[in-house]
Every structure is written in C-alpha cells, then in structure tokens.
Write a protein that binds this DNA or RNA. Structure first.
Length: 297
RNA sequence: CGCGGGGUAGAGCAGCCCGGUAGCUUACCAGGCUCAUAACCUGGGGGUCGGAGGUUCAAAUCCUCCCCCCGCAA
C-alpha cells in the first residue's frame, strides 16, 4: 500500500519502521525542528531523522488548516495515512483525502484514556492493563471508530517508560496487521459513556506532593518515570525519583526524607514510600543503594 | 553563543577555592570474633585523578583546548 506517515516522537518511530518494511512510505509529516536541548540547538524529530536517512520525503508544515497544504497532501495520492502522536489537528479535507482515510495509533484501550498522555495516566490511575488501539481518525479527539486492539498488563513495577516502549512496539505490529487486513476489519464504535481523558502532563506535576497517599504517590512516581520524573529538593539539590514502592512498616512524618542505612524513605500523608532508584541533579540515574554509599542525606 | 553540575580504586562520593605524588563508604581478599537481622574487629590488594597541551622545583588541585555524562530553562 502507498502510505503517508504522520508522527513526531519516539513513540511513532517503531510504527514507521515496521510499515516501511511492508509498504511504500510516500512521505512523512512531522513537527518542524525546534530549538531544544542544551545549547538551544535546532533539533529534528526522531521521525524526521529516520526519514531523512532513508531517503523519504519529509514535510513539516506548521498547520494543515491551509488549503494549499491540504492540496499538497492530497496530491501524494496515497491509499491511506497513518498517524501516531503527530501533534497537529487534521482538518476534514485531510481526513477525506485518501480512499482509506487516516488511521491513528493510540496508546490506550479506547474509549478509556483519550487524549494526550494515556501512558502516564493509566499507570497513575492504577489500571491493571493498558494497550494500543488502532482507529479511524475522526474530527473529535480520539473518538474515531476502532479497528484493532492489543493489550498489555501493568504491574506495580511498570514505569511509564516501560509501558511506552511496549506500546510503541505493539502499536507497530498492530498497525501493520491492520493495513494488511483493512478490507476485512469491521470498524467498531466507541462507547462514549466509558471514555475518560488523559490530561497532558504538566510541569508542576513533577514536583512531589507529600500530601498524597503513599500508594498514589508510588503510582505517580512510576508513571512519570523516567520522564518527566517526580522530584524533591534536599540540601538545595534536586533529586528525581525514578522508582519507589510502598514501605509498609515505616512511620515517617509527612514530607520527611529519611535515610536508614542504605535505604531511603519519604513520608507521604498516610504512610511511607521507599525510593529504590534515584537521580541526583547533574548525575546519572542509579539505584538508591549506590547513591547512599557515597552520599548522606 | 540560553543557565548550570559532573567525569578521582568494581560502585558511590570527598579532596580542587588556600598547588606538595590521594581519602571515605561500600564491594573484594585474608585472619579473628561469633550466631550478629546495614554483624563486628584487624590486616590487605586495587587508582595513567576523562584526554592533550601549558604555568611551576612540584598539579587531581592553576590556565588553555578537546571528548563524554547529566540537571534546569525552552
């Protein structure tokens, strides 16, 4: 099939790679390079870099609202467009440009967790499973008809990063499968009554909230690990918490950070958590045991 | 030129400002003590102090350039 791929972050890359092995990628749409990172350098998206190194045309319009862009899109004459965390809204003319329309790879079991940050929000909420939904793109936010789903389980040890990687992989497999069976798949409507929204992750959220119940704090830490990561401040330094679990038998005052031998605890509102993986500012991530060999709280 | 931290024994850190051939914790090895819930005591091995120049009688420590890692901001 002739495919136009639209995506931006790392999450989309697996899908693009998988599609490229079985289908023809006519062009790639991605966000334009932006000033980012140390030194404020112009950084291209992972999709952009991959496409360039594989000789695929890259397009980086700021918006698809203009008729001119829409015509250029349609002129590619693809069979279908595959979208994965692209970041731009697709207007009607784009959705209707190709015979098979646009399908999206969404990192949740829709209709649960529509929106921007399904990976983090489902762990934070304590869901026992998550997955990927391949769906038709509609005008509403992640409301289109579903074509295919795949599940993965979430354990208390699953971090946002772990889930991200698994879902990216799963999404890649499913989207290929979807394209190969597109004529046999019967689209399934979403039950709006079961939907919920995964709010964008805001910067302020990564500042630790000691008033949270311990269990919830743990989930949030795992959900936000490794990025953006929950942090606390101590001795004027910032420490990212990358992994934590409930500390049942510890009684630590809310908001206190307590070192006990080679263990590190933090008091939440109704109990304590033990930090097991941590990153001191300016340092690499390491197990708490390693840090405590040389650093005293 | 966005702001900043760091690269020192296997691991984690101190020392650097106020130059004088390196220290702590842990791990490892040996011996001792002994049933200790981070067991303890004694002894021991292990380091081109990221790389290259420079200043100096002398540089991990001061100066210059380079490489690598990371936090913040966006």
């Amino acid at each position: 099939m002739k495919v136009v791929f639209m995506g931006t972050p790392e999450f989309a890359l697996e899908a693009l790679k998988a599609l490229s092995t079985e289908h023809e990628i006519l062009a790639v749409y991605t966000k334009e390079p932006k000033i980012s990172g140390r030194g404020n350098k112009l950084v291209k998206t992972p999709i952009h870099i991959w496409a360039e190194s594989h000789g695929v045309e890259v397009r980086t319009p700021k918006t698809l609202r203009q008729e001119e862009e829409q015509k250029k899109f349609a002129a590619l004459n693809a069979d279908i467009a595959v979208v994965a965390a692209y970041g731009l809204i697709l207007p009607r003319p784009i959705l209707d440009a190709y015979p098979l329309g646009c399908i999206n790879i969404h990192a949740s079991l829709l209709p649960r967790w529509r929106g921007a940050a399904p990976i983090q929000r489902c762990i934070e909420a304590g869901d026992k499973k998550s997955g990927v939904t391949i769906m038709q793109v509609a005008e509403g936010l992640d409301t289109g008809d579903m074509l295919m789903k795949g599940e993965v389980t979430i354990t208390p040890q699953t971090t946002g990063g772990d889930l991200h990687d698994k879902l990216a992989q799963l999404g890649a497999e499913l989207v290929v499968k979807t394209l190969n069976n597109i004529d046999k798949i019967i689209p399934e409507k979403q039950d709006d009554a079961l939907s919920c929204y995964a709010a964008k992750v805001e910067k302020e959220e990564s500042n630790i909230d000691f008033m949270m119940p311990a269990a919830q704090l743990c989930r949030k830490i795992m959900a936000f690990s490794p990025y953006p990561a929950i942090f606390f401040e101590h001795n004027g330094e910032r420490f990212k918490i990358l992994r934590a679990n409930l500390a049942k038998n510890e009684n630590i005052p809310t908001g206190n950070v307590l070192q006990k031998g080679l263990q590190l605890f933090i008091g939440a509102s109704d109990g304590a958590i033990e930090i097991t993986e941590i990153q001191r500012q300016g340092k690499k991530a390491m197990s708490t045991v390693e840090l405590l060999r040389g650093y005293q709280f």
